[in-house]
């Protein structure tokens, strides 16, 4: 096993273990921390795939912003009160069964597909090569060679995917309106 493969497996196992921790921990704060660990491992995977920009953004947005808000809410709402009800209910058996079956099905197919394509070892080099040689063609202008990660992301986000990006901004606006509408405690009396 090469060092790169080892790094991949360590990070991947961490990410999955963190995700499992999120759903099995009883204390919400611990769940949030497991999620944080999972995010960090995913950021590591981005570095492994030579996507440093994504890694930095992953930490900045998810670890620095989203999770802090989560923790803030959890601590504000439920200060150290242990959940009384059982974490799993009478559907446990069937849920686990369906989950395992689905996992076996999808996982098996993915493994088969990965074998066909030639394993994960070749992936980072290939993706890095693709990133570093990204050539951007603007309308009516000479092709521009994109230097790094950030530029590649920028070209992709603000040019190729401009429309979905803008729709997503309306989406976020709606999320904000919704949070205010549903979250406001007192109803304003209109005359």
């Amino acid at each position: 096993m090469t060092a790169a493969a080892l790094a991949f497996w360590v990070l991947a196992v961490l990410a999955v273990a963190g995700a499992i921790g999120v759903v099995t921990m009883r204390q919400p704060v611990h769940s949030a921390l497991c999620l944080l660990a999972s995010f960090m491992a995913v950021a590591g995977l981005f570095v492994w795939g030579r996507a440093e920009f994504l890694a930095a953004v992953q930490i900045l947005v998810y670890a620095g912003g989203v999770m802090v808000l989560f923790l803030f809410t959890i601590m504000l709402v439920n200060v150290r009160r242990q959940a009384r009800e059982a974490a799993l209910n009478r559907l446990t058996g069937s849920a686990v069964l369906v989950g395992v079956l689905l996992f076996a099905l999808v996982g098996g197919l993915l493994v088969a597909e990965a074998r066909r394509m030639g394993g994960p070892e070749g992936a980072p080099a290939a993706s890095a090569a693709r990133l570093s040689t990204t050539v951007v063609e603007a309308a009516g202008k000479a092709p521009v060679e994109v230097k790094g990660n950030s530029q590649a992301v920028a070209w992709s986000l603000y040019r190729d995917y401009l429309l979905p990006f803008e729709i997503a901004s309306v989406f976020l606006l709606v999320a904000m309106i919704g949070a205010v509408v549903l979250g406001k405690r007192t109803m304003e009396k209109f005359d």
Partner: peptide
């Protein structure tokens, strides 16, 4: 010197809040 150095500085300093 990383090509995303500034972002990384912001990212790491925010993690300290935990």
């Amino acid at each position: 010197d990383l090509n995303v150095g500034l972002l990384l500085v912001l990212a790491i300093t925010t993690v300290g809040i935990y």
